[in-house]
């Protein structure tokens, strides 16, 4: 088991897969902050005053961390942020489900009824959390920007 977390190839696969997922998830939200803010508000978790700022910043954090993982820059900080975000998403979805709020998830898309909340969402987030752990501990620089530059020298 420990070898999964140290293996360079697994590390590369986890890093790139997670990076692609987060870049993909961020784009629609970054383009439509108003719609995303409305979804955040629907979760009924954040005070009204910070919803818009949260909705403006979060997609870009997802995008930067995703790109960083794909290119192999700042791997550990990006994987750590993604883990923090995933824990946040799991908590938000669990709280919304426990309150019985039936809302759009706002996970990969801001269009309404793209996807509603459910337990499968939490499982999916846990899966991504596992990938983040592999990316963090393997810290695989295989095919990363810094690796390519080092080889040229």
């Amino acid at each position: 088991m420990a070898s999964i977390f140290k293996n360079e190839v697994f590390g590369l696969l986890a890093r790139v897969a997670l990076g692609i997922l987060f870049v993909w998830a961020s784009i629609d939200k970054a383009l439509h902050p108003a719609a995303f803010a409305e979804i955040v508000n629907n979760y009924q978790l954040l005070p009204g005053g910070i919803i818009n700022i949260f909705a403006l910043v979060l997609p870009w954090l997802e995008l930067l961390c995703g790109l960083a993982l794909i290119f192999g820059i700042l791997i550990r900080p990006s994987a750590a942020w993604i883990a923090v975000m995933l824990v946040m998403f799991i908590a938000a979805v669990s709280l919304a489900l426990s309150k019985g709020i039936n809302i759009d998830c706002g996970c990969f898309s801001t269009s309404s009824h793209a996807r509603t909340l459910g337990l499968n969402l939490i499982l999916q987030d846990l899966g991504m959390l596992f990938l983040a752990a592999i990316a963090y501990w393997s810290n695989s620089r295989m095919l990363s920007v810094s690796y390519v530059f080092k080889r040229r020298r």
Binding site: P33, I53, L56, V57, W60, L63, L64
Partner: peptide
């Protein structure tokens, strides 16, 4: 990373004609 995301996110929103208010 957080500072960069904040600068980009709020910056683009400030420039965009259909930007949203910071406090909704």
């Amino acid at each position: 990373l957080l500072v960069a995301s904040t600068v980009i996110g709020l910056g683009i929103n400030a420039v965009k004609p259909d930007g949203i208010p910071l406090i909704g």
